[in-house]
């Protein structure tokens, strides 16, 4: 009998391995577009700057006298809803001397995707 020459079997084996790995790679690449899409979306959706702006304004207007503070409060609520599509409700509490010398505020923010709640205390 002529000896079977099986020196090149590894080539066929490699061929199989490579084609299978391509198959799995294709599946992974296919999935990655979906993942990237949703990740990018959630990054865009997160209203970090909106919340920062809101906090900034509330801190700035915290020590305003009445009725200016009430007007600002009303304006912020309406503008947030109208422009940013977010429900904002906050109330500022003046220092309660002598037990609490800080101005405090409770801030509530909800834009349907992110809900934010904070009890702010002046420094």
């Amino acid at each position: 009998m002529a000896r079977l020459n099986d020196d090149a079997q590894w080539i066929i084996l490699m061929g199989f391995l490579i084609s299978f790995s391509f198959f799995f790679l294709a599946i992974i690449i296919n999935q990655s577009t979906v993942v990237g899409q949703t990740t990018a979306e959630s990054v865009i959706e997160f209203p970090k700057n909106d919340i920062r702006d809101l906090r900034g304004i509330i801190e700035q207007s915290a020590n305003m006298p009445y009725p200016d503070n009430a007007t600002v409060n009303k304006d912020i609520t309406v503008l947030s809803m109208n422009r940013k599509n977010a429900i904002v409700k906050y109330s500022v509490f003046p220092p309660n001397l002598p037990s609490n010398p800080h101005t405090t505020a409770s801030i509530h923010y909800n834009n349907g995707v992110t809900t934010f709640y904070e009890n702010w205390t002046s420094l």
């Binding site: 599509n85 429900i87 409700k89 909800n110 834009n111 349907g112």
Partner: peptide
């Protein structure tokens, strides 16, 4: 869609 109800302020937002 982004419709939502806010429990705290009892507000329903419909876009």
């Amino acid at each position: 869609p982004r419709w939502f109800y806010d429990d705290q302020t009892n507000t329903m937002v419909i876009n």
